[in-house]
Write a protein that binds this DNA or RNA. Sequence first.
DNA 1: AAGCTGACAGATATTGAAATCTGTCAGCCC
DNA 2: GGGCTGACAGATTTCAATATCTGTCAGCTT
Lengths: 205, 205
Amino acid sequence: MADSALTAEQILRAAEEVLRRYGPSKATVVDVARALGVSHGSVYRHFATKAALRAAVTSNWLERAHAGLAEIAESDTPAPQRLHEWLTALFAAKRRKAFEDPEMFATYQSLEATTSEPVLAHIERMVGQLARILTDGVAAGQFTAADPLVTARAVWDATDRFHNPVHSGSWDQPGVQDAFEAVCSLVLAGLATAGTEPRRPPRRR
Amino acid sequence: MADSALTAEQILRAAEEVLRRYGPSKATVVDVARALGVSHGSVYRHFATKAALRAAVTSNWLERAHAGLAEIAESDTPAPQRLHEWLTALFAAKRRKAFEDPEMFATYQSLEATTSEPVLAHIERMVGQLARILTDGVAAGQFTAADPLVTARAVWDATDRFHNPVHSGSWDQPGVQDAFEAVCSLVLAGLATAGTEPRRPPRRR
DNA sequence: AAGCTGACAGATATTGAAATCTGTCAGCCC
DNA sequence: GGGCTGACAGATTTCAATATCTGTCAGCTT
């Protein structure tokens, strides 16, 4: 019956729980199956590989973790403040997750290390939201950016230290918040003027 | 006699060779001693611990690897071009080392992971050179930066993706050079105007 | 006496055998 | 028949025994 059918939904929930309890290095699909009271073969009916299952769980988690960002990106706050707010919210969310949900964060981190598809998709989404803010800013004459998408990627790269999980180890050190603000200011100042005109093809020297 | 005396110099040379041959995870101080034809106890007369020896070798190597940067930092090229040149040279040097001298690069990388003293000193030196360029730029009216040292650190952070060894895995991918130029442009544009005034959204224009 | 050696204790790494896990699939059950 | 099971092969991980390494030091050598 439909009631007793094993759904992908259920598997995802159980897998997240298992990952949270054991961490990415210890969690097995046998554990997930056991938590659901089914044989591990059933899990493979819904997810082709363990990696795919982990990716789906992480993707889910990432979506929830960054729920508020899209709203900020689409608010009608002036673009400069909006960008600052968005970056601050992103950094805060990452930090909070790293601290409060370490096992899931480690899972995300291990996924990132392999540059897998869902992480790339997530980055695309994030860069897309940045591009949205930039486009609005350009329209309002607050920003200059020849190609908002390229510039958005530059902003993403420039703030890497504050959202890339490989740097999470330094997020609890004293100076980070100041460092973050300094980079924000630099980036905002850069957007206010020239944008990302590839200045003078680097003449060989 | 003085001729046969074991010097720290000799040990450093031998240790670098051993590190280069075996890599940081396999090289032992017994190997170093063997290469010198002495007992490993002698090595400890000159370096208190294996970590200290590795740090000294890496420090040495780092110094040589970035020899040209100081000259660029102190040249009389206009600050904006000089900064671009410096960042480009830094990125090129890192990339070259990662590719041509992988074992020593891995050694450096493992040192960096522990945020040890010599790496911190090296970063200080790099940020100092950036600050020098910034100060010159401010004096010439090309840059705005309330506190050049703080701004230098922001420039260092913003370009992290192109000099931090944790990112070396992405340095051989197609788009990096463009990404680097885009971040450079953003940073240079930011320096041209507001510098690092803590979040004062540009309202003019 | 300054510098080196070699033996030592405790920590770390290597190894290979046993256990567990991943992914597949023929067959069972609802 | 669609979905689940349980047994299986090959890959990976665990574990404990063994070997090697790090750091110390008493004593030898020159």
